[in-house]
Design a protein around this nucleic acid. Sequence first.
DNA 1: AACAATACTTGATATAAATCAATTCGTAGA
DNA 2: TCTACGAATTGATTTATATCAAGTATTGTT
Lengths: 243, 243
Amino acid sequence: MVDSQQCPHDSRVSCTDCVLNSICLPIALEAEDIVKLDEIVARGRPLQKGDHLYRQEDEFSSIYAVRSGSMKSYTVTDDGQELVTGFYFPGEILGMDGIGRNRHASSAKAMETVSVCEIPFDNLGALSQKIPSLQQHCFQLMSQEIIDDRQLLALLSKCQAEERVATFLLSVSARKARNRLSATHFRLPMSRADMGNYLGLTVETISRVLSKFQKSKLLAVDNKEISIADICALKELSALRFE
Amino acid sequence: MVDSQQCPHDSRVSCTDCVLNSICLPIALEAEDIVKLDEIVARGRPLQKGDHLYRQEDEFSSIYAVRSGSMKSYTVTDDGQELVTGFYFPGEILGMDGIGRNRHASSAKAMETVSVCEIPFDNLGALSQKIPSLQQHCFQLMSQEIIDDRQLLALLSKCQAEERVATFLLSVSARKARNRLSATHFRLPMSRADMGNYLGLTVETISRVLSKFQKSKLLAVDNKEISIADICALKELSALRFE
DNA sequence: AACAATACTTGATATAAATCAATTCGTAGA
DNA sequence: TCTACGAATTGATTTATATCAAGTATTGTT
């Protein structure tokens, strides 16, 4: 059990024993209900970098929780442009945008080796019917996603490049910290291009902003490794708060 | 009954008889379940222009359906800037962003005289527990809100001013049409400032774009009245699709 | 280990939209 | 009805970031 807690890739670990259960779907559940949730969760083999978990327009059947690694979601617009809509770290849920139309509204791709838990949605709906706190939690997760999107919307429509990048780095930092990893030293799993795409900026702008932050000693950049040196200054740059 | 169908301000009209029931919450329900929904819906007196339905940080207790008139929702960021997050027309649901944290994440203000139906969320949750299709519909509504936000995100991060304005006008047009009103001649209830704020543009830019559209005979603008003359050309300008 | 392909950085220039400024137009209040 | 204040328009100028371009570093493949 202790062993499996230390190996999040391990597909045998149950929700009850998962290190992530304090931030994942089980957050709202009693021990006995977690067992019920556990029964419907499927844990497949890990995805390799570049693999898709699902594709836009695929029939929707499940939502997914990241157990280890990281994923990105993106949509392709009518005119063929790719739009990165989100990044997902361990304990985070993706795929909820497929519920409304019964097909996935985005594609999800592994940015590195990833293991996920699959939660069949028919079953989750039925289980939510029986466990009020699970239904409530599903509502909350979706509502939170709306709030997060709104926050991003604010970032894109009101803030300029430096603010956007600072806010993004703080968001990643907070999510690493929530997973009990360092808040100041971490690896960005996405390319500069994906980061720029997500933030509505070009690769060049991302690169310039990071260089500028480095010059002003806010942080050190070593390719994808980021060391935040002055998190307070970064927070001042970022008008929006992240918890 | 026929009378009340023609008077959406009338607070006595039930969900069963409401002209909007084909696009509002009851969409997924059997006749007998609509009666149950109807029992929990509260219909208060109309709001006057400028009145708030709820304010950011208010305790969350209900979601609302617009019966007549139109509302805007907005958040105020830490640094005091207002960010318009949405406009709501008859049959549309607002307030769902409050579910996640049990307090409203935005404020909702009447742009003109408005009447709304209040749906207490505790009750809706409990009722959803009993009526699977209602739970499913609630999930769908929220998921749709996520999709809509993503679409706006795409608009803000990838499209320039003319595209944004064209897309916005088409969105309003489609929603008017859904309410069986003219798709080509309608009144924009919001100010240019709110429109710009929502689209991440300044008032001046909105004004210039509308003038330009008018000069190129795409539409005629008479203050807040819009007459779309060439909806196809407008759709070409707008990369994104609206149903 | 060498190579190709891709990702990233940095600089020069162009451009869309913001900002600043001055009227004009509407609407609400006296 | 007149007045005044906010809303909208239009023009001149500035500016942030995109675009274009060239080079360097990293990664994956044989």
